[in-house]
Design a protein around this nucleic acid. Structure first.
Lengths: 316, 316
DNA sequence: CCATTAACTTGACTTAGTCAACTATTTTGG
DNA sequence: CCAAAATAGTTGACTAAGTCAAGTTAATGG
């Protein structure tokens, strides 16, 4: 396991840049087409965007609108004045700040927005229904990906959370471990198979009193995991510690190991043991920092490589 | 598993429509941001789009530009006149039609476009380099998908391709099968564990002469799989047939089964057998259509449910 | 309590885009 | 082959969309 303290930011290739630019041109046109759909309505695209925001969010101020939609403050002011003259919105000065006011659609405003909203809905429905259902899902999934990647990657307040195993996790862990070690160390598919075997056995013989799993999740995605299995009354074994490259540097590895140690102590185990390979230096640092001692090493040939296995123990 | 023989055009659900609309709003803003980048240049976004087209395509007419960029003919005429006055473009009347002329950038035009192009390139490069390399690829892939689906939908010539197993596949299959059967039939995590066990054993004892796997891949994603394992000299067993919901209706399930049958015949097996559950009706239709006969049924309790297992055989 | 900043507002302006009428060609249908 | 219709492009007259800078009022941090 390689731990970077900063996720890498890499200079993109020309082909990637060109693809993004092509997409931008394409979508500029696409939005132009959608805009045309509004032509017959009483509102411009920008007005419709403002109405949309007002219809879907509460307690907006003029500044909020300008910032979120990328509009000039003066322009927003005029738009709102126009809306107010037509009794589509009402403004109430904020108690906390007399310069600002909270803007809300009036009943008339909602009524004016409804057909607009409906047209837009129908237009998109028409667009989508040209595709078979499976493609519709692919489209939306890809859009969500784009939006997720380009959008405010507002670092989540809780950078990750730990939870127990659920359906789908073990497959994911098997895949990611298999791929990571194949990529970083050239291990072959037998490593992925080994992980599958370990996790299959873990689930099948799972004993909740003596065993436990922790999955680190971040924005709905698995970014790390660790497992404790019972070797004997006295000895627990820590297995399959792993952290996604994209989530390294957040202390997830350390936290997972700490959880294991805490659990093992609480259950009265005397020793926590683990097996790893010497090339996995980042993981080793975590074990050392947690107080594990190297017990023995032996060379072995596995996963298509010559490796040096290590056993580490921690007295609890 | 539901198999459609014609891709359905289905009325999209509200959640899909809302997701697309959210994306449209998001990207409208995104393009607005990119537009701001042009502010300091001598050209507006529309002018830049026209220049881009002129720089990258030959023999454009005014009508072509208007059509492809969604611009008013009068406006295009004026833009071109302005460019011509500044000696950025030259026009030559077409021999075939004296009303039209072919428009091309002059040297000065290319020189004026170059910094614009470079700025746009750099801007996109900056955007991309905020993401780690793997995310950059995910972004571009998703953009291509969106563009492919919404654009002049030239149906992909190869809707899917078959390939053998590679690292990461078995984890993915374990995950997806676990999740699908949990979702559709309420099976618990022991099913996922069973799939893990089967695939682990498949990889570990893999005998290329007698066994084989097929992964159906579409745009780089696994959308289906099937495995053949050797039970004896005479008998091959088909295992873990599965097609992603998003890729159903393309005949992938049928194709995977056909591949198995072809392989089993070629290797001289006498019987192809498989085990399934009666509730998996879509899979059963495939097996029946391929000539499999139901040999026996027995009730069993697995994966947290009462099920009826079925054995199907095909004489080769 | 004063200087600075933030949240608007307003006047004066430019740019972007639309619409309809027009000319010059080309295409089409009898 | 010709009249009518359509297409390519141009132009005048216009409106909508957006910008900029200077102003007013209120909040904030020493």
């Amino acid at each position: 396991m390689t731990i970077h303290h900063q996720p890498d930011r890499e200079a993109p290739g020309k082909d990637l840049i060109d693809a993004v630019r092509a997409f931008n041109r394409f979508y500029t046109r696409q939005i132009g087409l959608l805009d045309e759909g509004l032509l017959k309505s009483a509102f411009s695209l920008t007005e419709a965007r403002v109405l949309y925001e007002l219809a879907h969010r509460d307690d907006l101020t003029a500044t909020d609108l300008g910032r979120d939609l990328g509009l000039d403050a003066g322009y927003v002011s005029r738009l709102l004045k126009k809306f107010e003259r037509r009794h589509l919105i009402s403004r109430s000065t904020l108690a906390s700040d007399a310069r600002q006011s909270s803007i809300a659609l009036t009943k008339a405003g909602r009524e004016a927005f409804a057909p607009l909203n409906k047209d837009s809905h129908n237009q998109v429905a028409a667009l989508l229904s040209r595709l078979p259902a499976s493609e519709q899902h692919r489209l939306v999934k890809s859009m969500r990906t784009v939006q997720g990647l380009l959008g405010e990657s507002a670092e989540p307040k809780v950078p990750y959370l730990l939870r127990p195993l659920q359906v789908g996790d073990i497959g994911w862990i098997i895949r990611r471990q298999g791929m990571l070690y194949a990529q970083d160390y050239g291990w072959d598919e037998t490593y992925e198979a080994l992980v599958a075997e370990i996790l299959s056995a873990f689930v099948k013989s799972f004993d909740p009193k003596w065993e436990r799993s922790w999955i680190a999740e971040r924005e709905g995605e698995v970014v790390g995991s660790v497992f404790i299995v019972r070797k004997s009354d006295q000895v627990a074994k820590l297995r399959l510690l792993y952290v996604e490259p994209s989530a390294r540097g957040l202390g997830i590895g350390k936290r997972l190991v700490e959880e294991c140690i805490g659990f093992a102590r609480a259950r009265g185990y005397k020793t926590l043991t683990l097996w790893t390979n010497d090339i996995l230096t980042a993981a080793r640092h975590i074990y050392q920092a947690a107080g594990f001692k190297l017990i023995e090493e032996e060379a072995h040939h596995s996963f298509g490589k010559d490796l040096v296995g290590q056993t580490w123990d921690l007295d609890l």
